[in-house]
Lab assay of single mutants.
Amino acid sequence: MSGNGNAAATAEENSPKMRVIRVGTRKSQLARIQTDSVVATLKASYPGLQFEIIAMSTTGDKILDTALSKIGEKSLFTKELEHALEKNEVDLVVHSLKDLPTVLPPGFTIGAICKRENPHDAVVFHPKFVGKTLETLPEKSVVGTSSLRRAAQLQRKFPHLEFRSIRGNLNTRLRKLDEQQEFSAIILATAGLQRMGWHNRVGQILHPEECMYAVGQGALGVEVRAKDQDILDLVGVLHDPETLLRCIAERAFLRHLEGGCSVPVAVHTAMKDGQLYLTGGVWSLDGSDSIQETMQATIHVPAQHEDGPEDDPQLVGITARNIPRGPQLAAQNLGISLANLLLSKGAKNILDVARQLNDAH
Rank of each mutant, 00 (worst) to 15 (best):
L342E: 03
W198V: 10
Q304V: 03
S344E: 14
L92F: 10
I318V: 14
A40S: 09
R175F: 03
E258A: 05
V39F: 07
A330P: 06
A320D: 09
V301Y: 09
D311W: 09
L329S: 13
S288N: 08
P324V: 10
V143P: 03
R195C: 07
A189M: 03
L342P: 02
V143E: 04
T190D: 09
A360N: 03
Q181Y: 14
R156H: 13
V202N: 02
G168A: 02
A303I: 15
V301N: 00
T102W: 00
G72T: 09
L357F: 14
T279I: 13
V93G: 07
H256N: 04
A347K: 00
N118L: 06
A354P: 15
R321V: 03
P138A: 13
D99T: 01
V124N: 04
P106F: 13
A189H: 00
E209W: 01
E73F: 06
R156M: 14
H256G: 15
K62Y: 12
L148F: 14
N169H: 11
P106T: 13
I205Q: 15
D359A: 15
Y46H: 13
R156L: 09
S37K: 13
T243Q: 15
E162R: 12
A84Q: 06
P327T: 03
E242G: 04
G48R: 12
A84K: 08
A270W: 07
V265L: 04
P159R: 10
L170F: 11
I318Q: 02
G260W: 05
Q356M: 00
M212D: 00
V39D: 01
K157I: 10
I187F: 10
K176H: 08
S262I: 13
V94W: 00
Q328L: 09
S69Q: 12
Q217I: 03
E250G: 02
R321T: 09
L188S: 14
A122R: 02
Y213L: 03
I248T: 05
H268S: 04
V39L: 09
N169R: 11
H256K: 06
P309L: 13
H83K: 12
Q155I: 15
Y277G: 03
T41R: 12
Q217G: 01
T78V: 09
E293T: 04
T172W: 05
V38W: 01
M56R: 09
T269V: 00
L234E: 01
V90C: 11
I113W: 05
C114V: 06
D233S: 11
L81D: 03
R321A: 12
V94M: 00
E210Y: 04
G260R: 02
L68N: 06
Q194H: 05
L329C: 00
I291L: 11
E209N: 02
T133I: 10
V222L: 14
L49S: 12
C114N: 10
V222Y: 02
E162S: 06
S37G: 08
I63Q: 06
D91M: 03
F51T: 13
A151D: 12
K98Y: 01
L174A: 06
L338C: 08
G335S: 02
G168M: 00
E242V: 14
L64F: 09
G221Y: 05
R149M: 00
A249N: 01
D359V: 03
G274W: 11
A249Q: 02
A347I: 03
K70N: 15
E52F: 11
P101N: 08
V263R: 06
S96N: 00
E293I: 09
V265R: 01
T298I: 02
G274T: 00
T243K: 05
L188F: 08
H268Y: 13
F108V: 07
L338H: 00
R116M: 03
G60H: 03
T102H: 15
I231G: 07
L97A: 10
K140C: 10
E52C: 13
I350T: 00
